[in-house]
Write a protein that binds this DNA or RNA. Structure first.
Length: 229
DNA sequence: GCGACAG
DNA sequence: ATCTTGTCGC
């Protein structure tokens, strides 16, 4: 069957165009206006980890850290089954559902720990149609979101050059490889970049890093692939 | 034209 | 996303 995805992609493009209209590229929170972000106490991070040969079962992780200490206040991990395939440019349709469920769960069990801003592993407006995973998650949850990608997405009109990486951010002088920060929802690029900087202990902002480390750890302990002979 | 292309 | 050990350096 040649490209059963074509039809799906067209449907997805329409959906992204529709949801794109709801993205807010402005600072909507009071803490975002403060130079020191006073008023900000909780920052969240989400990530999915997979087992080597399996691309439909994954571990969905949500963490909430205290700002600015970056100490873990909440952690939720759950094995999920993904329905959509990975297609560059449509990450949201694959990863947003389980992550939204994790946020929904948090709202029910510990509403007081709901993060005031969420760091998402992937792009926001820096996307083919200006609607990456961070926007997708932002619009559907209506939570301020920041997109942080570890690799460059080749968007037409944007060339890979050091000079053009105005969105690139290097956490320390020792790390040359940049991360790409973009607006997800309810935040400006300037605020997103400043916040990201403040949340970086290493190259990747701590919320995302913790979600990544912990989800991997979970898989390592529960789904060992090595056999005992 | 072919390849590239977040996770 | 995932496969993967040691190693050099602060």
């Amino acid at each position: 069957m040649a490209a059963p995805e074509a039809e799906l992609v067209l449907k997805w493009e329409r959906e992204q165009a529709r949801l794109r209209q709801n993205v807010k590229e402005e600072d909507t929170e009071d803490w975002q206006r403060n130079a020191d972000f006073s008023g900000l106490e909780r920052v969240g991070g989400v990530d999915l980890s997979f087992i080597k040969g399996d691309d439909i079962n994954a571990c969905a992780h949500l963490v909430v850290l205290a700002y600015p200490h970056m100490k873990v206040l909440y952690e939720d991990c759950k094995m999920v089954t993904l329905n959509a395939p990975y297609v560059a440019g449509f990450l949201g349709f694959r990863e947003a559902p389980p992550l939204l469920q994790a946020l929904e769960k948090l709202k029910n069990v510990q509403p007081n720990l709901m993060p005031q801003v969420l760091f998402v592993d992937g792009n926001g407006l820096f996307h083919y149609r200006e609607f990456g995973l961070a926007c997708h998650l932002g619009v559907l949850s209506d939570l301020p979101c920041v997109g942080v990608a570890k690799n460059l997405l080749h968007v037409e009109g944007v060339v890979r050059s050091e000079e053009h990486q105005s969105q690139a951010l290097r956490s320390s002088q020792s790390s040359i490889k940049p991360v790409y920060v973009s607006v997800g929802h309810r935040i400006t690029l300037d605020t997103a970049v400043r916040l990201t900087h403040n949340c970086c202990l290493y190259r990747v902002p701590e919320p995302i890093r913790q979600a990544d480390i912990r989800s991997r750890e979970y898989l390592r302990c529960n789904f060992l692939t090595s056999d005992i002979t």
